[in-house]
Design a protein around this nucleic acid. Structure first.
Length: 415
RNA sequence: GUGGGCGUGGUCGAGGGGUUAAGACGCCAGGUUGUGGCCCUGGAGAUCGAGGGUUCGAUUCCCUCCGCUCACCCCA
C-alpha cells in the first residue's frame, strides 16, 4: 500500500473547514491592509535560494529539495517565499507601481526536515511582503498585520518578540565583537557551534546548547552596534508600538535563520511556549533586492505557518462554524424512476443546490438511511406513483414532512 | 543527523508462545409489502508493519529494517 511521503499530509474533507477558515481569514486581513495576492512557482532555480537565504544556513545546507530537471537545470522546491516574491518583483518591474508594493501569498513550502508536531516537509505559509519603502511606519504596518491576523483567527495571547540586527554595513563590526566575545569559550562548544563561530557567529546567540552559559548573558547586543540611521528608524518604530499600546518584548538573541535579514526581525509566539512555537516570523531585508540585481530597494515581510496556526486553533478549541453543505438526495424505485432522478438532479444542480443520486439501487429504507447519514436536507422520492402523476415526493428530513409536487416545481419544494 | 515512545480489520482498541484474535465506531443488509435518524439481528472486513532468528509451534520472545510519533538541532 502506498503512503503519503514522510512529512506530507493529506488534508481530508473534515479538515477543509479549518483550512478555508484560516486561508479566508488571513487573506481578508491582508486585503484590509492593502495587500494583493501573488503566486509564484513551486520551484525556482536553486541559485535563487542558495544565494539569498544563505549558503551557511541550515535551510540551504540540509533542507532543500533540490534536483536536476531533464534539461539539466538545477531546480529547488521553494523552501520559503521571500526570495521568490522579490524575484517576481524584479522580473515584472513591479517597482513601477506606487511604493511600497504590498503583496501576500498562500502556498506550500518544502523543507527536508525530520517531521514532528507542527513541522512538515511540505507545509503551507501565509506570507506578506512590503517592498520599496524603508519607513518605520511600514515596519509597524507589517507587525500590525501579523498581530491582526492572529486576532482575526481568534488566537489569543500571541506575543510579539522583536530585535534589531542592524544594516549590512553594521554587521562586520558586530560579528567581530561576537567572535571576540565567544572565542575564549570555544572549548565549551560543540562542533556545530565552533563552526558557527567562524561562519556565522550570529547564530551562536540562539544556540540552544549554549543557552544558560554564563557568557551568553554578557554577549554583545546587536542594538549596540547599529548605525545612526538604523537606530533612528528603530527608535521610531518602538515609539509607534508604545504609542499604539502594542505589547512586545525585546529579545537580543533573536537573529533568525536566513541571511538576508537586516534591522527589524521578529517572531510571534503563542502563550503556551513549546517546541516550534513560532507561528509567524519575519523581518526587514533591505539588501535583498539589490543582491538579486535590482536597484537598492528596502523590503520587509513575514511568513506564518498555516499548520501551526491550525494546531493552535485546535488547542484553543476554537471551532470555526461553517454549515457543511447539506445536499438534497434523489431516491427512486425502478429504472424509469432512476432516469427521472438523474434528470431532476441535473436541474437542481443548475439551480445551485447540491444534489446526490443514490448510486446503487437499494431499498427505499436503505436510501433514506443513506440520506440521513449524508446529512441530507431533504429527499426527493420518485416511484411508480409519482411517474404516473408527473410528480415527485419531497421529504424534509428535519421535520419528516412530505408533500407531492409537480416535477416542474421540485426546486421550489426543496426551499 | 541524534534520542525516546509506538506499529493488531477503514478508525479506535483489548489480548497474548498453540485462541474461531475481543469489543466499540463506521460500513452493508434485514426487522414483510415505497420511508431515515433510536433499537434489535445478521454480514463483510486483519497474511496481528516487513524480513530473518529462537521454538514442535510466533501475531505474542529476539534481531534487523521500514513506518508513525514526540523531542533535540533548526525552523513557519
Amino acid at each position: 500500500m502506498h503512503q503519503a511521503p514522510r512529512g506530507t499530509a493529506d488534508i481530508l474533507p473534515e479538515q477543509q473547514r479549518d483550512w478555508s477558515f484560516v486561508y479566508g481569514t488571513v487573506a481578508e486581513a491582508a486585503r484590509a491592509f492593502g495587500y494583493a495576492r501573488i503566486d509564484t512557482p513551486i520551484f525556482e532555480d536553486t541559485a535563487l535560494f542558495a544565494r539569498t537565504v544563505g549558503e551557511e544556513t541550515d535551510i540551504v545546507q540540509k533542507e532543500m529539495y533540490s534536483f536536476q530537471d531533464r534539461g539539466g537545470q538545477e531546480i529547488t522546491l521553494r523552501p520559503e517565499g521571500t526570495a521568490a516574491v522579490c524575484r517576481a518583483y524584479l522580473e515584472h518591474g513591479l517597482h513601477n507601481q506606487p511604493l511600497p508594493v504590498r503583496l501576500y501569498y498562500l502556498c506550500p513550502m518544502f523543507r527536508y526536515d525530520r517531521p514532528q508536531a507542527g513541522r512538515f516537509r511540505q507545509f503551507h505559509q501565509f506570507g506578506i511582503e512590503a517592498i520599496g519603502d524603508s519607513d518605520a511606519t511600514v515596519d509597524l504596518e507589517v507587525l500590525q498585520l501579523a498581530m491582526e491576523s492572529m486576532e482575526r483567527l481568534g488566537l489569543g495571547g500571541m506575543r510579539l518578540v522583536l530585535n534589531n540586527i542592524g544594516d549590512a554595513a553594521d554587521r562586520p563590526r558586530y560579528v567581530e565583537a561576537l567572535r571576540e566575545h565567544f572565542r575564549p569559550h570555544a572549548a565549551h562548544m560543540g562542533r556545530d557551534d565552533r563552526r558557527r563561530l567562524d561562519t556565522n557567529p550570529l547564530r551562536l546567540l540562539d544556540s540552544k546548547e549554549l543557552e544558560g552559559e554564563s557568557f551568553m548573558a554578557s554577549a554583545p547586543r546587536s542594538v549596540d552596534y547599529i548605525g545612526e540611521e538604523a537606530r533612528a528608524h528603530w527608535q521610531e518604530l518602538l515609539g509607534y508600538l508604545d504609542a499604539l499600546g502594542i505589547p512586545y518584548r525585546l529579545d537580543h538573541t533573536l537573529v533568525r535563520g536566513l541571511d538576508y535579514y537586516t534591522r527589524t526581525v521578529f517572531e510571534v509566539h503563542p502563550a503556551r511556549e513549546g517546541a516550534q512555537s513560532a507561528v509567524c516570523a519575519g523581518g526587514r531585508y533591505d539588501g535583498l533586492i539589490e543582491q538579486l540585481g535590482g536597484r537598492p530597494t528596502p523590503g520587509i515581510g513575514f511568513a506564518a505557518g498555516i499548520e501551526r496556526l491550525i494546531l493552535n486553533l485546535r488547542e484553543q478549541g476554537a471551532e470555526p462554524q461553517d454549515a457543511a453543505s447539506a445536499p438534497l438526495l434523489l431516491a427512486y424505485r425502478g429504472e424509469r424512476a432512476k432516469a427521472e432522478a438523474v434528470r431532476l438532479a441535473a436541474t437542481l444542480r443548475k439551480g445551485s443546490a447540491a444534489a446526490v443520486v443514490v448510486a446503487p439501487p437499494r431499498s427505499l429504507k436503505a436510501q433514506l438511511r443513506y440520506a440521513s447519514a449524508l446529512g441530507a436536507r431533504g429527499v426527493f422520492i420518485l416511484g411508480d406513483a409519482e411517474l404516473e402523476h408527473g410528480t415527485v415526493t419531497f421529504r424534509d428530513m428535519a421535520t419528516s414532512e412530505q408533500c407531492e409536487v409537480p416535477l416542474t416545481q421540485a426546486a421550489d419544494a426543496a426551499r
